[in-house]
Design a protein around this nucleic acid. Structure first.
Length: 509
RNA sequence: GGUCCGUUCGUCUAGUCAGGUCAGGACGUCAGGUUUUCAUCCUGGUAACAGGGGUUCGAAUCCCCUACGGACUACCA
């Protein structure tokens, strides 16, 4: 009987914008929490002050907001386990580092960068299988295990910079139980004495995440596969800190891979790939370089979430379209795959299309109106909604709506030369003139009446659809594109339709 | 180099834990149909168990090896 409250966290580092892999990590955490009536916590891991990027935190919040991913606790919303920024928890970590030292699980180290470099080079030259600071090498380095007590005290008292390293046990199999991958066993000799506490007074990720997860009562750590190799170290830390019994469960998700070459998708991929890697547009504060975002590219947040969730998870059914509510119901870590996945821009478009088509015409009108106004077009919402209803099947993005509908708002000023050449025959003007007269007689100018009249007209004149409709379309649209012509004519209205035919007769030859 | 993880259509994947339907779906692509055009849509096709050994009556599924890919290997997270 598992009665423990489910608490998971998303712990990004504010080193830049979140990319889609990060959003997916947040999403899986969120879904898992909500599915299990648990809490979802946002913690900022800013222990590396050197890599701090202005605006990154705000970007993270805004992105997740846009996605509809909500937090129960976090530096932005508060909570009982704060502060939720590691830089504000600075004083907490030292005591745990000291506790580890006092219990013989960690030690001070005074080696300079050059000395570390030398050690690694020496091992490399010796063809050693590892170049680690470990049970073999630590005796020859400058640390509180190798130095005399007075020497250590002297160095510490004089304020010499030091780090604190974990003392990895000699000969032990360390087992990690991963929900997605099963048991992973690593021998302690393959792990090095990682730095837990840096000389700048900040903990490293390894110490901070273990301490915080414990203090924040995190029940499950769901993170990217890149953390799997260091998880045995974390397991050791839980044990040495005396928290083994409350250690969270681990789930390491597969990575999102670059669609072209190799390797995991990274922030640096920017727009190089032909699709955004960021949820929101991002302007690099240093270079002012702009990277596109899904929001600005016209993706609906629901579609974006739907696309992301399927990169590594599937429901085991044939259902493809999921609302957030449905995802919460359906999600489980057991159905997360093991292998990395590539983003498919084509399928992403299809997803967005599904969401666009499902939207109400009025809703689409609201989205199209700003685009129209930008172009100086002001029109009735009802009219725009009707147009959206007619063309939405043909669009993937809101922007496409304009490309599919511009001719409703502006009479053609030019006519597609190819179509003119192909369809505009000698007898065409005469036919159009007569058609215009026939259309002028229609009282109720709706699609079905227009269609009926046109067909009668065709029959009487012994003309085929193709002879008339193509040029009729040419006068109304200016090209051979668009939805059903009778529908276009109806929406345009009788007067405008007749005007456009006349304009065509005047201008095409 | 070392450690760990992984490998089913071009892509996302179901099927693997409890071996037994022509290996299923979606995107893409191709063909046909609908249509006045373009798009949508409908129908159909295409295409995969990385390779090799075992175990078994029977292996995508269990075991071993190989290959390939990826992650990690910082006083970064």
């Amino acid at each position: 009987m598992e009665t423990k409250k489910i608490r998971v966290r998303f712990a990004p580092s504010p080193t830049g914008p979140l990319h889609i892999g990060g959003v997916r990590t947040a999403l899986y955490n969120y879904l898992f929490a909500k599915k299990n009536n648990g809490d979802f916590i946002l913690r900022i891991e800013d222990t590396d002050q050197a890599r701090y990027v202005q605006g990154a935190e705000k970007y993270i919040i805004e992105s997740l907001n846009w996605c509809g991913i909500k937090f129960n606790e976090g530096f932005n919303v508060g909570g009982d386990y704060g502060p939720y920024k590691q830089s504000e928890r600075k004083q907490i970590y030292m005591q745990y580092a000291e506790q580890l030292i006092n219990n013989g699980f960690a030690y001070y180290a005074f080696d300079t960068a050059e000395e570390l470099e030398q050690m690694r080079n020496r091992l490399k030259a010796e063809n050693s299988s590892t170049q680690q600071y470990d049970t073999i090498t630590r005796g020859s380095m400058k640390n509180s295990l190798s130095l005399h007590r007075e020497e250590i005290k002297k160095r510490l008292d004089s304020g010499e910079p030091y780090v604190i390293r974990i003392k990895i046990p000699d000969n032990e199999e360390i087992m990690v139980n991963d929900i997605i991958r099963g048991e992973v066993i690593v021998h302690s000799s393959k792990i090095d004495d990682k730095i837990l506490f840096k000389s700048d007074g900040m903990p490293t990720y390894h110490l901070a995440n273990v301490v915080d997860d414990h203090l924040m009562k995190i029940s499950h750590v769901i993170r990217g596969e890149e953390w799997l190799p260091s998880t045995p170290l974390h397991v050791l830390l839980y044990r040495y800190l005396g928290w083994q019994d409350e250690m969270p469960e681990f789930a390491h998700m597969p990575l999102i891979l670059k669609p072209d070459g190799k390797g995991k998708l990274s922030k640096r991929d920017g727009d190089r790939l032909g699709f955004p890697v960021f949820p929101l547009q991002w302007t690099n504060p240093e270079t002012n370089e702009i990277s596109s975002g899904y929001r600005e590219s016209g993706y609906f947040p629901e579609a974006f979430i739907n696309i992301l969730v399927f990169l590594g998870w599937n429901p085991g059914t044939t259902q493809e379209i999921f609302s957030m509510e449905e995802l919460i119901k359906a999600f489980s870590l057991e159905r997360v795959g093991k292998a990395g996945s590539r983003f498919d821009p084509e399928k992403a478009k299809w997803y967005n299309h599904q969401y666009l088509v499902a939207k109400k015409d009025e809703e689409l009108a609201n989205l199209l109106i700003p685009i129209l106004e930008e172009k100086g077009i002001f029109s009735e919402k009802d009219y725009i909604a009707k147009i959206c209803g007619l063309i939405k099947e043909r669009a993937n993005f809101v922007q496409d709506l304009w490309e599919q509908s511009y001719f409703f708002f502006k009479a053609p000023s030019t006519y597609d030369a190819k179509v003119v050449k192909k369809k505009w025959k000698e007898g065409t003007p005469q036919i159009l003139m007569e058609l215009k007269e026939k259309l002028a007689e229609i009282d109720i100018f709706n699609a079905s009446n227009i269609e009926e009249n046109v067909k009668v007209f065709l029959e009487k004149k012994e003309l085929g659809m193709g002879q008339v409709m193509n040029v009729f379309r040419l006068t109304l649209v200016g090209s051979n594109k668009g939805p059903g012509l009778f529908n276009i004519a109806e929406l345009l209205g009788k007067e405008e339709t007749l005007n456009r035919i006349q304009a065509g007769l005047d201008n095409i030859n």
